[in-house]
C-alpha cells in the first residue's frame, strides 16, 4: 500500500531532503495546472507530492551580473508584470501573457512550462532564442546547468532525472540595441493552445540587423531554429521590404520542417501572421526608443 505523503519544502536544503525520499509514485508540483488536472482525469488518488511553491527563492526574479535569474516557481503573471522581464526579455513577458487564462497565468510557472516540454509551450520558444539556461538541483544537492534547448528532448521528454528539479532559469537580457518579440496563433484569439508560435530576437545597428535568432514552435517536437530566416535577416536593413521577404521564408521554413504533416497547409500561411505580428511589434518598440 502506497502511503500518500505531501511535502512542501521551504528551502533548497529541504527540497534536497525531500528529493532523496522521492519514490516512483512521487510527483513534483508547482502551479499544478497540468498535474492536478491529469491526476483527476486519470482517477489517480494514491500518490505523493513535493510542492515546491513554498520555497521563497524559487519565486524571485533578480538581475545579477548582467544575467537575469528567474526562479522556477515564478508564475506567468509575474513574468507578464515584472519590470526587469519587461525591459530585458520583453518577448518572455509577451509569451507569458498569451498563455491560458488569467486564472491559469496566476498559477502556471516557468519551470513547469519547461519541464512539461509541450510541443507548443509558449515561453520555451523565447527561452531558446535567448539561449537561456536552467539550474537543476538533485537529491544530493548537486546543481547542474543546462541549456533549455538541451533539457527539452521531445514532446514531454526532458533530460531531468527522477531526483532532479529545475530551480532557476538564467537569461541574458537584451542589450539596448536588441529587440525581441513573440507571437502565437491558436484556435481563437485568447485562451488557446498555440497551433504555431515564434520568437525573434534581433540586434540592430543603424537600422541594420547585425545578429538574429529565430525559433518557431509547433513545427517539430520542440521549437525549431530557422537558420533560413536568420540568414535572410542578418546584415539587412530592417524595413517593410525585408518583412515581406521574411514572411515568404516563414512559409518555406514550415514546409521544410513538416513536409508531410497535414497541418502544413495551414501553418505555412499562419506563420506569416505571427512573423508579421513580430515585425510590427519590434517596429513599434523601436519607434518608442527613438
Amino acid at each position: 500500500m502506497n502511503k500518500s505523503i505531501f511535502t512542501a519544502p521551504k528551502s533548497l536544503d529541504e527540497l534536497k531532503t525531500a528529493l532523496s525520499k522521492k519514490t516512483h509514485n512521487t510527483y513534483i508540483v508547482a502551479g499544478g495546472t497540468d498535474l492536478a488536472v491529469g491526476m483527476n482525469k486519470n482517477k489517480i488518488y494514491d500518490f505523493s507530492l513535493i510542492d515546491i511553491t513554498k520555497i521563497k527563492e524559487l519565486k524571485k526574479i533578480e538581475y545579477k551580473d548582467d544575467l537575469i535569474e528567474i526562479g522556477s516557481c515564478v508564475r506567468m503573471v509575474d513574468l507578464e508584470d515584472n519590470e526587469i522581464i519587461n525591459k530585458y526579455v520583453p518577448s518572455l513577458s509577451k509569451a507569458a501573457s498569451c498563455i491560458g487564462s488569467t486564472q491559469i497565468r496566476n498559477l502556471a510557472t516557468i519551470g513547469g512550462n519547461i519541464a512539461n516540454a509541450a510541443q507548443c509551450a509558449d515561453t520555451v520558444a523565447v527561452l531558446f532564442a535567448f539561449d537561456a539556461e536552467v539550474e537543476i538541483i538533485n537529491s544530493i544537492g548537486e546543481i547542474r546547468k543546462e541549456l533549455v534547448y538541451d533539457v527539452i528532448q521531445g514532446i514531454g521528454q526532458t533530460t531531468l532525472k527522477d531526483d532532479e528539479v529545475i530551480i532557476k532559469v538564467i537569461v541574458k537580457g537584451q542589450e539596448a540595441n536588441e529587440y525581441s518579440s513573440f507571437s502565437k496563433i491558436g484556435a481563437r484569439k485568447t485562451v488557446t493552445i498555440s497551433k504555431i508560435n515564434a520568437c525573434i530576437k534581433l540586434a540592430l545597428n543603424d537600422n541594420k540587423i547585425t545578429d538574429s535568432r529565430v525559433y518557431i514552435g509547433s513545427i517539430g517536437v520542440k521549437a525549431v531554429r530557422s537558420l533560413l530566416i536568420e540568414n535572410a535577416l542578418n546584415n539587412k536593413v530592417f524595413n517593410e521590404e525585408l518583412k515581406e521577404k521574411i514572411l515568404e521564408l516563414g512559409s518555406k521554413q514550415v514546409l521544410d520542417s513538416i513536409p508531410k504533416r497535414k497541418s502544413k497547409d495551414y501553418k505555412k500561411i499562419a506563420v506569416k501572421g505571427i512573423l508579421d505580428d513580430i515585425f510590427c511589434d519590434i517596429e513599434k518598440r523601436r519607434n518608442l526608443d527613438e
Partner: peptide
Amino acid sequence: AVTSCTLFAGQ
C-alpha cells in the same frame, strides 16, 4: 483569481 480544479488542497 485561480481555478480551484487545477490545484491540490495541500498547496
